[in-house]
Computed example of a mutant assay.
Amino acid sequence: MSTTASTTPPIRTVMSPGRYVQGKGALARLGEFVAQIGTAPLIIADDFVWGIAEDQVSASFTAADLRIERVGFGRFATATAVDALVEKIKETGTDVVVAVGGGSAIDAAKSAGHLAGIRWVSVPTVASTDAPTSALAVIYTEEGEFVEYRFFPRNPDLVLIDTQFVANAPVAFLVAGIGDALATWLEARATAASNSTTMAGGQPTQTGTALAKLSWEIIHENAFSALDAVRDGVVTPALENLVEANTLLSGLGFESGGLAAAHAIHNGLTAAPQTHGLSHGQKVNIGSLTQLVLEGAPRAEIEDFIEFTTRVGLPTTLTEIGLTVEDETELRAIAELATVPTETIHNMPFAVTVDDVVSALKSIERLSRSVRADRGLAEPVKHVAKH
């Protein structure tokens, strides 16, 4: 997504969802907001999520005189899953698709809604990614390997997140969201430095860059208190702040501020089967640390990043994602996928090669272990891939 020569003057642009709703008990008002968008909704939710959300969603839809039509969903947003949803939309005469659940279900709904020519709504039940607000979807293979980004001309008409659901979910989801959102500022500042094209289709705006930085600041101020709130299953101001940072601010910041090396390296990591059991945010955190190494960030900044993310519970070594510095074949495959011509790593303000990425990935093992030892942090525990 780097800038290319053009005969027309460059533009700067910001994209955002039509409406963002967040708060404890917000799900009870879903029908009220969906009824302003369409009259024949189709709900996309896997069986587990539907078991938790069905009563509240159904009650809100009934109160708004909306039909209750639900279709299940698998693990990944694959091209096949999207095409199946398009057929279901056509069969049921749907005019708005409502995704309830995680990032993959939401991405599939956005992609299917776009192909079917209808409107779409994101209802994340966890704050594990910043995908819900964006006008793009990530498509994977059945095994979880990155395939492509799909871009849409508009964002969701509605993003609604009930913070009590976030508080009730395992804390690992919120940790993953922190990993995803922390990359937003690191990538936005790199994109601003290179004046590259953002996911919104223009050069970065001051607004997008500022929102990315605000997300970073709110996360650092609220993360630990918010994680404790989730461990206790309660909604607190710190949790509300963190959910907004993870979801809205990071979503706006990455889309209109720009992606760079961190997410490209995440996509590259999907080439290694060892990483398939990891969350999006865990892999992104490795990408963020690798980006800091690539850009020669100040040692103090890197050390602080390692300490903060280790204390949050995110991986900062190859060991923790099932790799080693000796895995030359896997590391090169990761680097090659991360540096394909269409990848966002080329938004960095300097050229990045396959060899650069391999070297940076190898370097984080010793670097992180050293910082963790100096600061009294836990030793890395090897991630064992589940097949």
Score class of each variant (00 low, 15 high):
D304R: 15
G251L: 04
E326Y: 14
A262V: 02
V312A: 10
G251I: 01
S250E: 00
G277S: 13
A300R: 15
P273R: 10
E301I: 14
I302T: 06
T324A: 14
D327F: 11
T290V: 11
I265K: 00
V312M: 10
V284D: 04
L294T: 01
L259Q: 02
G253L: 07
N285E: 11
E326M: 10
F254C: 07
A272Q: 00
I265S: 00
G268S: 08
T324D: 10
A272D: 05
S288E: 03
A300Y: 09
E320H: 09
H280Q: 09
G257Q: 06
A300D: 15
S279K: 10
L278G: 01
I321H: 01
T310M: 04
T317H: 08
S256M: 12
L252V: 09
P315C: 13
I321L: 13
H276K: 08
A260K: 04
E303M: 13
F305R: 10
P273V: 03
E326Q: 12
A264D: 01
A261G: 08
A271H: 08
T290P: 00
E307Q: 14
L294Q: 06
A264T: 05
A272N: 03
L294I: 09
S288C: 12
T270D: 03
E326P: 03
S288K: 06
I286G: 00
G322T: 05
A297N: 09
N285D: 10
L248A: 06
T324M: 06
T317Q: 12
I306L: 05
G322H: 04
T270W: 03
L252S: 04
A272V: 09
G253V: 07
A297C: 14
G257V: 08
T290K: 08
N267G: 07
P273L: 08
V312Q: 11
D304A: 14
L292R: 02
E255K: 11
I286Q: 00
K283M: 13
I265P: 00
G313E: 04
H276E: 08
K283S: 10
G251M: 04
L269F: 12
E295S: 11
I302M: 11
H266R: 08
V325L: 08
L259D: 02
A297S: 14
L294S: 02
G277D: 07
Q291W: 02
A262I: 04
S256W: 04
I321F: 05
I286M: 05
T290Q: 10
T319R: 13
F254R: 03
H276N: 07
T319F: 05
E307G: 09
G268C: 10
R311G: 06
G322D: 03
I265F: 03
F254G: 01
G277A: 11
L269M: 15
E295Q: 15
F254A: 03
H263E: 05
V293A: 05
L292G: 02
G251S: 12
I321V: 15
T309E: 11
S256N: 08
Q291Y: 07
G277R: 07
I306N: 00
L323T: 01
E320R: 05
T316S: 12
L259I: 07
T316H: 10
G296S: 14
Q282D: 12
S250Y: 03
H263N: 08
R311L: 13
S256K: 07
G253T: 07
G322L: 07
E303Q: 15
E328C: 10
S279T: 12
T329F: 14
L269I: 04
A260Y: 01
E326K: 13
I265D: 00
D304I: 01
T329Y: 13
E255N: 15
A300I: 13
